[in-house]
């Protein structure tokens, strides 16, 4: 068995077995998970969100964001969203945390409201980190490259439908 396979089997076993170590109290278990959360926050969320805020700042200062807002207004209006919401979608393709950062930043300056956030929420994740996942998921699992366009297409269709559904549900 190759080293890579070994590693994957290990990952698999760690995920399922969830060894019940009787000396661990429920508090110990919680703390172990919270520690993982801290690592995710520091290694993943903070750098990604910071990057998104800087991007939005650049787009704002250069006037590109306002231009995008006008250019994409007719498209995003289909889902009852302002044109600038396209930035959340584009951000999602890079990273989910980044898209959340963009959404937050647009919420803070009054471009998006709670309803808009609710509509965008499923789309952020359905389209989330597509670029990374091409390697991390499709590459790892060994999906032939010729099927990538279909898989990407499905994600976009999913996001589009989900936003329609949310538009109907969200007050």
């Amino acid at each position: 068995m190759s080293e890579e396979q070994n590693k994957q089997t290990l990952v698999a076993q760690e995920t399922i077995t969830a060894e019940v170590n009787s000396s661990d109290t429920i508090m110990d278990v919680f703390v172990r998970g919270a520690r993982k959360g801290w690592k995710v926050a520091i290694d993943n969320i903070i750098p990604n969100v910071l990057m998104a805020y800087v991007c939005i700042k650049v787009l704002n200062v250069t006037g590109v964001l306002a231009w995008f807002g006008t250019a994409f207004a007719p498209v995003m209006a289909i889902w009852g969203l302002p044109g600038q919401a396209i930035m959340v979608i584009l951000g999602a393709l890079m990273s989910m945390g980044g898209a959340v950062g963009v959404a937050m930043s647009l919420f803070n300056d009054g471009t998006l409201n709670g309803t808009h956030i609710s509509i965008l929420m499923p789309a952020i994740y359905l389209l989330g980190s597509k670029i990374q996942y091409l390697g991390r998921l499709l590459g790892t699992a060994g999906v032939p490259g010729k099927h990538y366009p279909v898989l990407l297409g499905i994600s976009f269709v999913n996001a589009a439908i989900a936003m329609f559904v949310m538009k109907i549900i969200a007050p």
Binding site: F30, G33, G37, A41, V49, M51, Y53, V54, G101, S105
Partner: peptide
Amino acid sequence: SGARDGFLFALSLAPGVMLALGLME
């Protein structure tokens, strides 16, 4: 706005993430 605002915002997410992953654990 900018990196400083992004940092504080991201920092404000940490407790929720820690709580969620603690519960999942």
